[in-house]
Simulated assay, not measured.
Amino acid sequence: MTDPVSHRQALAVEPFAVLSRVPAIGNLILGVRADGALLEGIGAIETATLEDGFAVLRGPGRETRLELAAIAQIVTDQMVMKNVLPFLEILDSQGNTIAKLTALDGLEGFDAALDGLARTPLDAAPAAARPGPGDEPADGPLKAAEAAGKPVTLQAVKTGVVHRWTGTLTSVSFSHGFLNAMQPDMHLHIRAGAITAWNRESVDGSDVFSAIDGAGKAIGLTLTAEAGALAG
């Protein structure tokens, strides 16, 4: 068996020098994984600013704060669906992915946005392991938000990043082992069994629901609504 052809390359520059170019990439999917949940913001990033040691990427209803000190490497790679989809992967010092930005407008615009940045070839990344089947995850506040038709904020937090989307949920359903919330500018995918409960607390006039796994641990995904908006 031959090794797969690698398109993976390291960008050997200061992280904000790369992230400041993200608005030029155009439409993209910016995904952050909490433990068992993937929150993706979809659309163009309008601004990339440097704020107190964070690169802050903003688009309509979306904000991602990336801690520059937590970023050890940024690599480019690509996957082939119907078209070639190039992406940036932001990694910590252990090689774990902090965030992934997948360009939707093709390779040409992606390469143009990163023009002039030196790249070093890397071996292809190993295929990600696929989790086994599990129970349907608890969906209480997600379904309540869909029924209420009120704006909510979804937030995924892990070391090095805070990623949030604000809008009105219109489609929450379980299919093929995942609980999904699908919007034109956001996708949320929660693996079967990843959430067994949601803890609710009141914070500054809002209800904050934190997703909890089977071991009683918060996975880093929250849903925030106006106090009482999701009651009943």
Rank of each mutant, 00 (worst) to 15 (best):
L39Q: 06
A231Y: 11
V203W: 06
K100I: 14
D204C: 10
M81E: 14
L50P: 02
D35F: 11
T47H: 06
L104I: 05
V161S: 05
A194K: 07
S175P: 00
D185P: 02
Q94H: 13
K158F: 05
T76K: 00
R58N: 07
V75A: 08
G26E: 03
F87H: 08
H187Y: 10
N96L: 15
A34I: 07
G43W: 01
A229M: 08
L188Y: 05
G132Q: 04
S6W: 10
E201T: 15
A44T: 00
P133W: 09
N83F: 15
P23S: 00
M81S: 15
M81Y: 15
I212L: 07
P15Y: 00
F178A: 11
K143W: 12
A34D: 05
Q183E: 12
T196K: 10
G31L: 11
V157T: 13
Q183V: 06
R191Q: 13
K158E: 03
T170Y: 06
P121D: 08
V32E: 04
G220Y: 09
A99R: 05
L101N: 03
V75T: 09
T97F: 09
E63C: 08
I219R: 03
L30F: 12
A194V: 08
R21E: 01
L230G: 02
I219K: 02
V56W: 01
A55W: 02
D111M: 14
G61R: 03
K100R: 15
V84A: 09
E89P: 06
V152P: 03
